Simulated scan of single mutants.
Amino acid sequence: MRQVKTKISEGGRVAIPAEYFNQLGLEVGDDVIVRLVDGEIRIFTLAQAIQQAQAWVRSFTPTDRSLVDELIQERRQESQHE
Rank of each mutant, 00 (worst) to 15 (best):
R2G: 02
R2Y: 12
Q3G: 12
Q3N: 13
V4K: 12
K5I: 11
T6N: 03
K7F: 00
I8T: 10
I8W: 00
S9V: 10
E10R: 07
E10V: 08
G11A: 02
G12Y: 00
R13H: 06
V14E: 00
P17C: 05
P17L: 05
A18S: 12
A18M: 10
Y20S: 09
Y20T: 06
Y20I: 15
F21A: 09
F21S: 11
N22S: 13
N22Q: 13
N22R: 15
L24V: 09
L24E: 03
G25D: 03
G25S: 03
G25Q: 07
G25P: 05
L26T: 02
L26D: 03
L26N: 05
E27F: 01
V28N: 11
V28M: 11
G29Y: 03
G29T: 04
G29A: 03
D31H: 08
V32H: 01
V32G: 04
L36N: 06
L36M: 06
V37C: 04
D38M: 01
D38W: 00
D38Q: 11
G39H: 06
E40G: 04
E40F: 00
E40Y: 01
I41A: 02
I43D: 02
F44N: 05
T45D: 02
L46P: 03
L46R: 10
A47Q: 12
Q48N: 06
Q48C: 13
A49C: 08
A49H: 09
I50Q: 10
I50Y: 04
Q51S: 15
Q52M: 13
Q52E: 15
A53C: 08
W56F: 14
W56G: 00
V57F: 06
V57Q: 07
S59Q: 12
S59A: 13
F60E: 06
F60L: 09
F60I: 06
T61E: 09
T61H: 00
P62Q: 09
D64R: 14
D64Y: 13
D64Q: 12
R65C: 02
R65K: 14
S66I: 11
S66Y: 08
L67I: 10
L67S: 11
V68W: 01
V68K: 10
D69F: 10
D69V: 13
L71K: 12
L71W: 09
I72D: 08
Q73Y: 01
Q73E: 13
E74T: 14
E74G: 05
E74I: 14
R75N: 15
R76N: 13
R76I: 14
R76H: 10
Q77S: 14
S79K: 15
Q80G: 12
E82I: 14
E82C: 02
